[in-house]
């Protein structure tokens, strides 16, 4: 699932779905069917592969890729949405499965999937927003769970979730920008999890995406639901809506 989602995201970014069709006839539908087959018919959540590991990460991945291809109708969206609801915790957050500890990364996947499904109305937004904004520490950085250390990747998981809930202003953006910038290696260029650590691609992506959400000058606008440039998701989603309608009519 995870590699498939990355593959779809790359194809979307390169506007290459047509080329995929030329090379593999019905390629897009095949991808969609592969993903759809990973949905658990009983609970509505998704497995990562035929091995069967389940996690709200995979559910989000499925919604991400299917929506980019305009194929969300291949899965039982309502059932998946009910599953996400069952992952809501007493503190307002969401975990990997029902009653698993609230975790900012999992919250991103749950809120992202609900946003794609158009069901943010099911979220206790004030309570979740409060929990998310509570993640900011005095040094400006964000952690992923209470009493954990700050890490640049949570800049993304927390901020994107706040952005989807239109509550990004509930944290101090200037302090967070400052923290993220401190994590850059001025010679190597990339970003690390926290200042002074070794840089890597993973943290660099989330640092840049986070800075983009904070309107840092010179960066393209990022889509908080997909972690891709807004120009790309606009193009894909605009087209897939049309595609969905055409298919609905047949």
């Amino acid at each position: 699932m995870l590699y498939t989602v990355s593959g779809v995201q790359i194809l979307a970014t390169l506007d290459a779905f047509d080329e995929l069709e030329q090379r593999v006839k019905g390629g897009r539908t095949k991808i969609g069917q592969y993903i759809a087959a990973l949905q658990d018919p009983v609970t509505g959540t998704f497995a990562g592969d035929e091995w069967g590991e389940q996690d709200t990460r995979f559910l989000y991945g499925a919604f991400n890729a299917l929506s980019l291809m305009g194929l969300l109708h291949l899965v039982d969206v309502d059932k998946a949405v009910r599953y996400i609801q069952s992952c809501a915790n007493f503190d307002g957050g969401y975990g990997t499965s029902p009653r698993a500890e609230s975790h900012a990364g999992q919250i991103f996947t749950c809120v992202g999937a609900l946003t794609i499904a158009g069901r943010l109305d099911l979220v206790n937004q004030d309570k979740l927003g409060a929990w998310l904004s509570e993640r900011q520490l005095k040094n400006g950085g964000l952690n992923g769970r209470p009493e954990k250390k700050e890490d640049v990747c949570y800049s993304w998981w927390v901020m994107s979730s706040l952005a989807m809930l239109s509550k990004l202003h509930w944290i101090d953006g200037d302090k967070l920008s400052e923290f993220i910038l401190q994590c850059q290696d001025p010679e190597g260029g990339g970003f690390a999890d926290r200042p002074g650590d070794m840089v890597d691609v993973f943290h660099t992506v989330f640092a840049l995406a986070g800075l983009s959400l904070l309107n840092y000058p010179g960066l393209e606008e990022v889509d908080p639901v997909y972690c891709m440039p807004k120009s790309v998701t606009k193009r894909c989603l605009g087209r897939s809506v049309a595609g969905g309608r055409a298919q609905g009519g047949t």
Partner: peptide, 8 residues
Amino acid sequence: IRANYWNY
């Protein structure tokens, strides 16, 4: 740090 939230 979360003044906007409290003001909300």
